[in-house]
């Protein structure tokens, strides 16, 4: 009896999970409700790979320092693994860095695209993706002696074909370094 109840419970869980997965593929109120109140463990997948907007840019993080005398250093790019090795199709430990940065920047873009361009976007500094980038940037070694403040820029480039110029996505304020 207990086995039957367990089996039926699992079947019901699978059915509900599958139905919720279908609903959550559409960006409606039902999906938002499920994601907020039902999917507390974040187990409902999103299956829209590379669509509707395919990733068509490479993202870059650059930073520069300001000394106490207000002089500025050159821009330095945060090194993230680029290019591909032959055996990456079997074993590819470097793939995460780029994907993480890409996800963070896309989240930031989505966040600030919700607000008019003329609106003050200082609030972005309090979003988690911004703080993640700031954390990454402030942990980088300085190329100058005695840096007091650090500023970063997020940029996107078209990659190998380079048929358009890089775009600046975000220029941060100067943040104090400890």
């Amino acid at each position: 009896m207990a086995q039957l109840i367990y089996t039926l419970s699992i079947v019901i869980i699978f059915v509900l999970w599958f139905v919720c997965t279908i609903i959550c593929q559409f960006k409606g109120k039902s999906a938002a409700f499920i994601q907020k109140y039902i999917d507390v463990l974040r187990l409902i997948p999103s299956w829209t790979f590379f669509a509707p907007r395919p990733g068509k840019s490479d993202y870059h993080v650059l930073y520069r320092d300001k000394r106490p005398d207000e002089s500025l250093s050159e821009w330095t790019e945060v090194e993230l693994s680029e290019g591909r090795n032959f055996f990456d199709f079997i074993w590819n430990p470097r793939k995460r860095n780029k994907k993480v940065l890409s996800d963070i920047i896309q989240t930031l873009i989505i966040t600030f695209s919700r607000y008019p361009k003329d609106q003050d976007r200082t609030f972005l500094m309090y979003t988690f993706p911004y703080i993640m980038v700031l954390h990454l940037v402030t942990r980088q070694h300085s190329k100058v002696n005695d840096p007091a403040f650090r500023q970063f820029v997020l940029a996107e480039s078209p990659g190998y074909l380079e048929d358009s110029d890089p775009n600046f996505i975000l220029l941060s304020k100067f943040h104090e370094l400890n």
Partner: peptide, 19 residues
């Protein structure tokens, strides 16, 4: 439903990224 995919430029755009 994506313009980039229907106009057949999506794969070229994805493959041209270093990511």
């Amino acid at each position: 439903v994506s313009v980039e995919w229907r106009t057949s430029i999506a794969m070229r755009l994805i493959f041209s990224t270093k990511t």
